[in-house]
Design a protein around this nucleic acid. Structure first.
Lengths: 367, 367
DNA sequence: ATACTGTGTGCAAACGATTGCGCATATCGG
DNA sequence: CCGATATGCGCAATCGTTTGCACACAGTAT
C-alpha cells in the first residue's frame, strides 16, 4: 500500500517570517511574555505590553496560524466542496454559509470537485488532512459512498440538497426535490396542459431522478399516463444550457405544450432555442425552471421557476455545523421552496382557442 | 494597540485524531520509523514497512498537514480572493487556476470579500496568518493600497485584471480594458452608429473607468463629441442586471441607437428592459456586452460581446505564482480579448431605412 | 521580623510530524 | 579473522505557539 499524502510536493524552502522569538530577543524578554503581551494577558505589565506590541507592529509580525492550529487541535476553518464554482446556484449558498461562519469566528474555504467523483474524494481527503473543523458539501457525486468513506471520520460533514441519507451518521439540509417538482408540474396541469415534457441532466443523477419522480407523481395524480417520448435526458453534453437547446425538437415532435426543466440553465437554453425557431413563449410552449437563479427574472420573457432558498440553505448548513461542533446533535432539515410565477407559463394555445371559440361575444383580451 | 489575530475563537477542544505515535506504540517501533515507513523510505525493512502501512490503514490514520506545514514552512496551498463567487465571470478563471495548481501539487482555497474593502483586508490578513504559499486576487477593491499593506510581505500576490500596477512589487495578468472597450465601440461605429451610449457600474470602479475611457477614445477617434447624457452610471444599486434594466429609459431619451455595456450582466438587464418595452434588438437598439460569460450565447437574441479569455487568465496567474515560488521574476502579462459578434448588433434603423430608400428596386431582404 | 498576597516574568512541556546523525547487527571481500 | 560496507532502526532537535507552574520581588498586615 502506498500511503497517499495528497498535499505534498518537492520544492525548496520559503523565507521564514518573523516569530515571537525574534520579538522576544529584541525586547529582552522571553517568548512566553511576548505571546501573553500580544493577546493582552492581564499579568503582563502595561509598560512591557506596550513596548512589545509596538515592536511587533514595527517588525511586521504576522502570527502563525498553523502553529496555533497545531497546539489548539483546531483550525477555525470550514471547507466547502462544490461541483463547480461556475454554477450560478452556488453563489448565494456560499454567502449564506459565510455569513454565519464569519459571525462565529470561522473562515470558509471553498474547493471544487470539477464534477469528478475522483476529485471529490481527493478534496475531502485533503480537507481532513488539513484538519478543517467541518465540511459542507453541495451536489455530491458520491454521497452513497460517504458512510463507507467517512463513517469513522471525526470531521463533521453536512450535505446540502441530498435527499435520502444512507446513514444516520450524516447530516443534511435540503429542499424536497420530489415535492417541489410535483408542485411545478401541478402548476402546468392547472393551466390546462396535458402534454408536459421533462428535460433532465446526467451529471446530477440524484436530484435529476427526484425531480423526474415528482414530475411522474404529479401526472399520475392527474391520471395522465407517462409518455416516455416527453422525457428527454440528453447524454452527449454536460452543458445545461446546451441540453435545453437540443431538447426542443424532440419535445415538439412528441407534441409537448409545456416543459418542466431540470433547472433554470436548461430552461434558458430551451428559451433560446424557441426564439431561434420562431416559437412564442408562453403562447406556443410553456416553460418552467428550477432554482430561481438571479438571471431568471431577466430572461426574455422572465422565467417561471421554483425558487430554492439558497442563502438559507447555506445558513442552516453552517448553523448545523456549529451545533455539532458544540457537541449537540442537530436535526436534519427540509426547507420549503416557492413557486415563482413569471411569464413563461400560460394556458395552452389549444385551450385559449377553445375559450375564444366558446365565448365569441366577449371582447378578446389583447393582453 | 490591539494585536488582531483574526483566526481565533473561544471554544472547547476537538477529539484528537490518531498520530504516528499511536501507530508506533502499536507496532513497537519509534515514531521516526513510522514516518519513514509511510513515505516509503528505502532504509526501512520491507517487513516493517508493510506492517506499519497496514496498521495505519486499520487505524484510519490521516496525516496531519498542519504539523507538516509547520516544519516544512510551507502549506502547498494558494488562496484566491474574489469579490463574490456569484459573478459568472469567476468560474472559468478559478478553473484555470486550479488546473495548473493541481498539476503542481498545490491546493487552492477560494475566499470572498463580498465586495467589501474591509473584508478584503481581513481575508488577505487571514491568508497570510495561515501561511498560504501565494495569493491570487480578482477584482480587488484596494489594489491601490496594496503597496502600503503588502510591501514587506513575503507572500507573493498576483492580481488578475488590474491595469496599472502602483508598484513594481506587484504582479498581474490582465486584459486591456481600454483597448477592448475601444474595439467594442469601434464595432458599433463601423456599423454606422453615432449615438452610442455607455452603461457603467459603481462597484468595480477601476475597470469601469477604463472601459469608459476606451469608449471615449473610440468616439474621439471618430470625431464624435462625447455626450454626457449618453453615459449612464446608476448609483442606487449594485445589481448589474438591474442597472442595465433601469438604464434603458435615460438612454432612449438621450437618443441612443446603440449601447456598450460594462459587462454581460448589464447587457442582459438591458435586453430584458427592451423586451418589456417592446423594443426590438438589434433593430431599434444595438447592444454589446463584455466578458462573454457562458450565458451570453443563449440570450434572446444571442449577445454580441467582448470575450475575456477567462480560463487563460487563471492559468497564467497560477503559472506566474509558480515561477515566483521557484525564485524567478516573471513578466506581467496582458492577454488579448476577442470581439464575439452575435445578434444584438446591427446597422442603425435610420441607416437601414436610408439604404432601402436609396435602392428601391432591389427586393427587400426579409430576413 | 514573619507570613501573605499580588505582580510581573521565565521555564519547559506540549502539539504532530520530519530528518540528520549515530548505533547496532549482518554481510562480504580479502 | 578483520575491516569495510550495507541494512535497519532509534534519539533528539526542530518548526512557532500556548500555557501550567514556579520564581522573584514588592508591598502590606500581623
Amino acid at each position: 500500500m502506498e500511503q497517499d499524502h495528497g498535499v505534498q510536493s518537492r520544492s525548496h524552502s520559503r523565507p521564514t517570517a518573523v516569530s515571537i522569538y525574534d520579538i522576544a530577543r529584541r525586547a529582552n524578554v522571553s517568548p512566553s511574555t511576548v505571546s501573553r503581551a500580544l493577546e493582552n494577558h492581564p499579568r503582563i505589565g502595561a509598560e512591557t505590553r506596550k513596548r512589545i506590541q509596538e515592536l511587533a507592529r514595527e517588525m511586521d509580525y504576522v502570527p502563525n496560524a498553523v502553529a496555533r492550529s497545531l497546539i489548539a487541535n483546531r483550525t477555525w476553518t470550514i471547507g466547502m466542496v462544490l461541483a463547480t464554482i461556475a454554477d450560478p446556484f452556488m453563489g448565494r449558498v456560499v454567502e449564506g454559509v459565510e455569513h454565519v461562519a464569519i459571525e462565529a469566528g470561522f473562515n470558509v474555504f471553498v474547493s471544487t470537485s470539477q464534477n469528478d467523483p475522483q476529485r471529490e474524494i481527493a478534496v475531502m481527503k485533503m480537507l481532513k488532512q488539513r484538519r478543517v473543523d467541518g465540511i459542507i458539501v453541495i451536489a455530491s457525486h458520491l454521497f452513497d459512498q460517504y458512510p463507507r468513506l467517512f463513517y469513522r471520520s471525526k470531521t463533521p460533514v453536512i450535505v446540502i440538497n441530498e435527499q435520502k441519507p444512507p446513514s444516520d451518521a450524516m447530516h443534511f439540509v435540503s429542499v424536497d426535490d420530489i415535492r417541489e417538482a410535483y408542485r411545478a408540474v401541478e402548476h402546468l396541469l392547472k393551466l390546462g396542459h396535458s402534454r408536459i415534457g421533462y428535460i433532465g441532466v446526467t451529471n446530477r443523477p440524484k436530484s435529476n431522478q427526484h425531480r423526474l419522480q415528482g414530475y411522474r407523481e404529479a401526472l399520475q395524480a392527474a391520471s395522465i399516463p407517462i409518455d416516455p417520448a416527453l422525457i428527454i435526458v440528453p447524454e452527449e453534453t454536460q452543458d445545461h444550457m446546451r441540453i435545453g437547446e437540443i431538447s426542443l425538437e424532440p419535445l415538439l415532435t412528441a407534441g409537448a405544450t409545456a416543459v418542466f426543466c431540470y433547472n433554470d440553465a436548461v430552461a434558458i437554453g430551451l428559451l433560446s432555442a424557441c426564439s431561434k425557431r420562431g416559437l412564442a413563449v408562453p403562447e406556443d410552449l410553456s416553460i418552467i425552471g428550477f432554482d430561481d437563479i438571479d438571471i431568471a427574472a431577466y430572461t426574455v420573457p422572465p422565467l417561471t421557476t421554483v425558487r430554492q432558498p439558497r442563502f438559507q440553505l447555506g445558513q442552516r448548513a453552517m448553523l448545523m455545523l456549529l451545533a455539532i461542533l458544540d457537541g449537540q446533535e442537530p436535526e436534519n432539515e427540509i426547507v420549503p421552496g416557492e413557486l415563482v410565477i413569471r411569464q413563461t407559463t400560460a394556458r395552452p394555445a389549444s385551450d385559449q382557442a377553445r375559450r375564444q371559440a366558446h365565448i365569441p361575444l366577449r371582447p378578446v383580451d389583447v393582453r
